[in-house]
Amino acid sequence: MNEANEDPTVIDRRLHLATGFLSSERDWIVRRLAALGARLRSFSDTQVELSISLKGRNAVDQRVTLECWISRTPRLHLVSTSTALELAVALNEVRDELIRQVDDAKTRTEPRNNRLRRQTQQGQA
């Protein structure tokens, strides 16, 4: 990912560490997820909530889950998971999957890709 687009402060303001992560790991996790910040920057801080959890640390069934709630109509609840055994790889996987989901959600709701919204906005102009 292009580091110029990575803004860890966007993630830091919105991220809640849930089960399985230590508070001492927060900065490292925020840096790993920083590329997601470019996708979330278009939403205000009050519109986005992020939560990351880890179950079964260092076990064969380890699972990292990254959840994102975006307050809009309708409210979005996006979830990405990874079962990679290496924690850094798992964080990269959940980040990349959530980026894809946010991009898909934005595409579905933009007027140019939604005939009904496009007609409504043209009627207002």
Rank of each mutant, 00 (worst) to 15 (best):
P74V: 09
T65A: 03
D61M: 05
E67S: 10
L91G: 05
L85E: 09
R63G: 00
P74S: 11
V64P: 01
V60W: 04
N92S: 15
V60S: 10
S82M: 07
N58P: 02
R75D: 06
L78F: 12
G56E: 01
I70S: 11
T81H: 02
A84S: 14
L91D: 05
L87P: 06
S82G: 02
N92A: 14
V60Q: 05
L78P: 09
L76K: 10
T65D: 05
R63V: 14
W69C: 09
A90D: 06
V79Y: 00
I70W: 02
A84N: 13
L78N: 08
R63P: 02
A84T: 04
E86P: 03
C68G: 05
S71K: 13
L78D: 07
R57K: 14
T65L: 02
T65W: 04
T83W: 03
Q62I: 04
L78Q: 05
C68I: 03
W69G: 04
V60L: 11
S71L: 14
R63I: 14
D61T: 14
L66F: 08
P74Y: 06
V89G: 01
N92Y: 02
T81V: 09
A88C: 02
A88Q: 00
E86S: 11
G56D: 01
R63E: 15
P74T: 11
T73G: 01
V79A: 03
A88Y: 00
A59S: 12
L66A: 01
P74R: 12
L54K: 05
S80H: 08
T81P: 00
S53T: 08
R63S: 08
P74Q: 04
I70H: 07
W69R: 13
L76N: 04
L87E: 13
R63W: 01
L66V: 00
V89P: 02
K55A: 09
H77F: 15
H77A: 15
T65E: 10
L54T: 11
S82N: 04
Q62C: 01
V79N: 00
T83N: 11
T83S: 08
R75V: 15
Q62T: 05
S53H: 02
K55C: 10
S80I: 03
L91W: 01
V60A: 12
W69I: 15
N58A: 14
L54C: 11
T83D: 09
G56H: 00
V89T: 14
S71A: 15
S71H: 07
N58F: 10
L87A: 08
R75I: 13
S53D: 07
T73M: 13
G56Y: 03
W69D: 08
